[in-house]
């Protein structure tokens, strides 16, 4: 490619950037805060509930996560979770309910390609990386921490 063509490309890329619609960042951040905060309150309520009935702290963590995942799954099945996310953005995507939504929405979407190679194999098409990197990061930090604690003893 000659210099002139590269120049034209770069000018155009800048033009597109300059003309891009201004995202309503303030509005989107505010909505993310509201939706994410509301889910935080629900999580806190559940956590308090399970702390009262579960014997250990670890178990109340596990049951809280599971309940939130269940709520996300049901809202996805009812077809409302994507609408909440359209309004709330990251406020709906980042909570663990959104993680459940990635699994359930993919399962629903690819059900039509069959139970095994559709639903079964593509359920984790978006959630997969979260599991992979969450597991690797959790393993490495846990390993480091256990090693350090053993050295100190």
């Amino acid at each position: 490619m000659d210099g002139k063509a590269i120049d034209a490309q770069q000018r155009y890329q800048k033009l597109v950037k300059d003309n891009a619609p201004k995202p309503k960042v303030g509005r989107n951040l505010w909505r993310a805060f509201l939706v994410g905060g509301a889910l935080g309150v629900i999580g806190h309520f559940l956590y308090g509930l399970f702390e009262a009935i579960e014997p250990t702290k670890g178990e109340s963590t596990a049951t809280t996560l599971a309940s939130l995942i269940f709520i996300g799954a049901v809202l996805t099945a009812l077809g409302v979770y994507d609408s909440i996310a359209q309004w709330g953005g990251a406020g709906a995507a980042v909570p663990i309910t959104g993680f459940a939504n990635t699994i359930v929405s993919a399962a629903m979407e690819f059900r039509r390609e069959g139970l095994i190679l559709g639903l079964g194999s593509r359920m984790f098409v978006i959630a997969g990386p979260v599991l992979v990197y969450g597991t690797v990061a959790g393993f490495l930090t846990g390993l480091a921490k256990v090693a350090i604690m053993n050295l100190l003893h």
Binding site: G36, G37, L39, G40, V41, I42, G43, H44, F45, L46, Y47, G48, T61, A62, T64, L65, L68, V94, P95, I96, T97, G98, F99, V130, G134, T135, A137, G138, F139, G142
Partner: peptide, 14 residues
Amino acid sequence: GGALVPVSGFGASI
């Protein structure tokens, strides 16, 4: 419980 809600809580739990 507010700390458990974002997926960062999921990573922390792992």
